[in-house]
């Protein structure tokens, strides 16, 4: 298990052009980022390409890590998530709609629906639990499936503005709970 500080040090070293540090960073973190991208893209081949691009991006932007103000793993996972979502949305724009694998995976809420682990994150879990199930699900879908307000409105069969108001209220509730 690598500590937060070790990962942080490796990212800092990457920012100075240290290839050995980058190699170590890849060794410690690539399984998490690959798993995350695969969960979003649901295609091995596309995930390989995406993860390749993600690490190039990490290498080239390592000097910006400190300005972001997040933990190192959050920084890395956010890069991976955003890149995978970009690809997913581009694929949808090109191919029109979801492919079969996605459709199957979408049939039921994933196991991660509300099962966020990590004990030090219990507060976040507790706050999410305050949201009505469908609202929490909408937030999760935006994050992990790249769904837009329009996608969510059609999924939950409500007008777009209603969806927007719903979600904003839920986010506010979440924020209030997390700030307590």
């Amino acid at each position: 298990m690598t500590t937060r500080q070790e990962i942080e040090t490796l990212i800092d070293k990457c920012a100075t052009g240290d290839r050995q540090a980058f190699s170590d960073l890849y060794r410690y973190t690539s399984a998490k980022l690959f798993g995350t991208a695969l969960r979003i893209l649901k295609s091995e081949a596309e995930t390989e390409e995406a993860v390749q691009e993600i690490y190039v991006k990490i290498w080239r932007n390592a000097d910006r890590y400190r300005a972001g103000g997040t933990s190192p793993m959050t920084w890395l996972i956010t890069i991976a998530r955003n890149h995978a979502i970009d690809r997913l949305r581009a694929r949808r724009a090109m191919g029109g709609g979801m492919d079969e694998a996605e459709a199957i995976a979408d049939a039921a809420p994933g196991p991660e629906a509300l099962a966020m682990a990590a004990s030090d994150r219990s507060r976040i879990v507790a706050c999410f639990a305050l949201l009505p199930l469908d609202r929490a699900e909408a937030v999760r879908r935006a994050y992990l499936e790249g769904e837009t307000y329009a996608d969510l409105a059609s999924r939950f069969e409500v007008p777009l503005n209603t969806m927007r108001t719903w979600l904003r209220r839920s986010l506010m509730k979440l924020k209030d709970c997390l700030s307590e």
């Binding site: 998490k32 798993g35 995350t36 969960r39 972001g68 997040t70 933990s71 793993m73 959050t74 920084w75 996972i77 956010t78 998530r81 196991p111 991660e112 099962a115 966020m116 682990a117 990590a118 994150r121 976040i124 879990v125 937030v139 999760r140 994050y143 992990l144 979440l174 997390l178």
Partner: peptide, 11 residues
């Protein structure tokens, strides 16, 4: 980002 990244915990 710290809040939503927890969605990836179970992955």
């Amino acid at each position: 980002q710290e809040t939503f990244v927890t969605f990836t915990d179970p992955i």
